[in-house]
Nucleic acid binder design. Structure first.
Lengths: 218, 218
DNA sequence: TTTATTTTTTAGCCTTATCTAAATTTAAAG
DNA sequence: CTTTAAATTTAGATAAGGCTAAAAAATAAA
């Protein structure tokens, strides 16, 4: 059995490996978890002892098969609870992350199986992230960052990369959400800012925004 | 903010005060929490510092107003989650306690308010225990232990005192549940055992069973 | 290829929540 | 009213998870 802290480390390492490739640095973990490098060193040694990561001093950490399976299960729980909060309890998509961070650590396989059934086996969470199935399988989805699109290209928003409340609220005020059709009207070479069209309105967005919106191009 | 351990102590003290009157002993707490008296002494000193219990050395502990309010809120959460598990996720009444023990510590007032609404403001949990309202008010219910009834008296089962899986499964096999009509056919002076009638079947039950079933007499 | 800088690890300390063993206080019994 | 027993508290340890400061290793720069 794994502690809360251990579970959170595994989750962080999983996300970091996903985003930046295998072998994550001590500092990257410390950064993500808002803790100190020395604390990370301690914990990854413990996790290596438990065979959930492979780790050599000074060489960074990688999840083992077992570690990845634990991490994916936590992510599955997190995303299922988010669906529950939005679909059943009528929370907004920017309000659910913190609560799901707590709920994801509840230990009961039966609970999650029944919750999954109750929610009718959803494929995506409210932010467009795929929900791993019971075996940890994550259906691959072809999605592209808005920032990769060129002038005049078009797509449907299928997810957000960052899901902080501030970013999601920014999107809300512009009526951008999962399912929105987005067209790149213009793109500035200099700073990668864009003018986009969303439901007949034009918006100016910075590079940072474009790098946090996932589209499915049409 | 209170830690998991602190919350569990407050809950235990609340239940003990409820069952045996104000001022609970160190040993009683240790017993209930399956820990050592010395650990209890440490913790109740911490809780006293935080003004959630009043405590004098060697004299036992009592919840303050603040401590009681925290305890009742945890119990409210526990019972609401139990209703959710049984009503929405189709768990059996003997399967929900352990999961609710975890869920009761999730911190979000908004969550509980919305859960309460989603469940349509239930008054009782699956074991017949009353659910405190948002202000901590517990509706007083007139219920009586089956063991207090005399020969030929009758009542409707409205709750169970103990809610361990083994006891609940014992009741299940005899088709005794919330709502069951129970009549005392005979009562043995010597050992307080009883013969009872439940849906046209007679059962022999020990004192211990009778002391864990709450009835509303008619 | 040395030197400087950054990254990572080690060493030592703190807090929370436990424990055992010993000491102390209260309650019970003779 | 002592003595014994039971209950409670104190003292000292331990394990988890975190921190700071210093040491060591790896990387980058000169």
């Amino acid at each position: 059995m794994f502690t809360l802290a251990e579970e959170n480390y595994l989750k962080a390492i999983f996300h970091l490996e996903n985003d930046y490739g295998a072998g994550v640095s001590t500092n990257a973990i410390a950064d993500k978890m808002d803790t100190r490098a020395s604390s990370v060193t301690d914990m990854i040694q413990k996790l290596a002892d438990k065979k959930v990561i492979s780790y050599q001093k000074y060489k960074g950490a990688s999840l083992t098969k077992k570690g990845k399976s634990i991490a994916v299960n936590i992510i599955r729980k997190h995303r299922l609870w988010e669906v529950f909060l939005v679909e059943k309890l009528d929370f907004q998509w920017d309000e659910v992350h913190e609560i799901a961070e707590q709920l994801e650590h509840i230990k009961s396989d039966e609970l999650i199986q029944r919750l999954d059934l109750f929610l009718e086996y959803p494929d995506f969470d409210p932010h467009g992230d795929p929900i791993p199935d019971r075996n940890g399988y994550i259906k691959p989805t072809e999605k592209k960052l808005l920032s990769k699109l060129k002038k005049n290209q078009r797509g449907i928003c299928v997810g957000v990369k960052e899901s902080s409340a501030t970013f999601l609220q920014y999107l809300d005020t512009r009526k951008i959400g999962i399912g929105s059709s987005i067209t790149v009207i213009d793109k500035e070479e200099f700073d990668q800012s864009m003018t986009i069209l969303v439901s007949n309105k034009q918006f100016f967005i910075t590079k940072k925004i474009a790098e946090n919106l996932y589209l499915k191009t049409i």
